[in-house]
Design a protein around this nucleic acid. Structure first.
Lengths: 228, 228
DNA sequence: CGTCTATTTGAGTTAGCTCAACCGTCGTGG
DNA sequence: CCACGACGGTTGAGCTAACTCAAATAGACG
């Protein structure tokens, strides 16, 4: 489970922000580093920690028996991963590159912080707002073309982690093509072709495979929710 | 937002059950009937009610600007719809056929029931378990073929609202083909053809368009999460 | 009986998939 | 230092699952 705690990621969750009060939780907080590809947790593991990303990016995913994979979300700084309604994690979570997290131990079989009503309410709102983000992901998976998916994805990352400079907006894509493919429900080839297509249509530059410069955010927005 | 409150819907949320203590909420509870196609709420509406389905089925959905639609979930008796993390609903919700609901007025801008910690915790767990259900829906939308989607869908409905008799499991499908199509990310034609295909492969009978009899649950299960 | 709507079925098209080749980068070992 | 293989990404060619468009069928209802 993935929860966005930053205010400026999704238009659907404006102004929502959540910072753990570290002093209050000093006894249960702990910083930790994960390296590229390392697992934070796996589906089915007993869940006794919630993680808040401090630096870097993680991916949460589910596997089908035959090896097909769906990436549920990319977790950026501020986001929470690992919330569960029972004692188990319900998806895998891995680091993409170097990732620094705060580890928050939860009491036995609950992520509700029974003893702290205020925090529980914060988590409730976060969970509800995460449901909201997931709903947009549904729309994308079920009802958008490859180009529309890619445009939506780039805009989301831009909104989340884009840096503005004189020539436009610059993004890092630390995840590999197969991560993007499994997030959007496409193949790596289609991801690659679609990026090339957006480049040829002068919406983006691709200085290298893991950097994107958005050169026309208007075109990209038109594509992401086209009217036809 | 949709929350499953019944224990036996998803294998991922075993044993989770939630019944509002009506006596405790007598002052804010109210029963209400909605007729086929009637709207419980629309995306963007101010959210001051949560609904628990008592009889019938509802659909929650989101619309793309161009009219494309994604159905997020079908709400069955026991389920909660209309939870929000802010003051607004983030999807549409309509009745399918005659629907009886309990209406639960929430205080101004919160579904957290600030004054009732126990209920707040229940809702938290429900929201988390709903996220869990949604994750399975992701896998289906992003990574399954039409036949696999249909098989998964039928099994889910069977688990939720199937009746067992001497010849197998019988389901009602009160929703129309276009609802199913928009839930699975397919077209109505593909839904229809896929049902016909499952019928010809002797997994189901179709006595009429809104009834299904599962004749081989094993075949259906194999198809839903095939190993190849 | 005619109209309307939902569903099914058929025929042809296409977006995205599969399979394969190719390219550039990087780390390793001779 | 270079050769080599591994890996991630891009591109091409052909295929196919699902889509679009169209027509046929079947109930429901006035």
């Amino acid at each position: 489970m993935y929860v966005s705690a930053a205010s400026d990621f999704s238009d659907a969750t404006p102004g929502l922000r959540f910072d753990f009060d570290s002093s209050r939780f000093a006894d249960i907080f702990q910083q930790r580093i994960f390296h590229d590809g390392q697992t934070l947790f796996r589906e089915g593991d007993k869940s006794n920690c919630v993680y808040q990303i401090v630096e870097g990016v993680v991916r949460t995913s589910k596997l089908l028996v035959n090896g097909r994979r769906q990436i549920l979300a990319f977790g950026y700084p501020g986001d929470l991963v690992g919330l569960s309604h029972d004692c188990r994690y319900h998806n895998d979570c891995e680091a993409i590159g170097e990732v620094k997290v705060k580890v928050l131990r939860t009491n036995a079989c609950s992520a509700c912080f029974d003893d702290d009503q205020e925090t529980a309410q914060q988590l409730m709102r976060l969970a509800a707002s995460e449901v909201c983000n997931m709903q947009d992901h549904f729309l994308m998976l079920g009802r958008k073309s490859a180009a529309e998916k890619m445009a939506s994805f780039l805009l989301t990352v831009a909104h989340r982690a884009g840096r503005k400079d004189e020539k436009g907006i610059v993004l890092d894509l630390p995840m590999c093509r197969s991560d993007i493919a499994d997030f959007l429900g496409l193949t790596i080839e289609t991801v690659s072709r679609t990026l090339t297509k957006l480049r040829k249509e002068r919406m983006i530059h691709l200085p290298d495979p893991h950097s994107v410069r958005i050169t026309s955010i208007e075109k990209l927005r038109n594509l992401a929710d086209r009217q036809d």
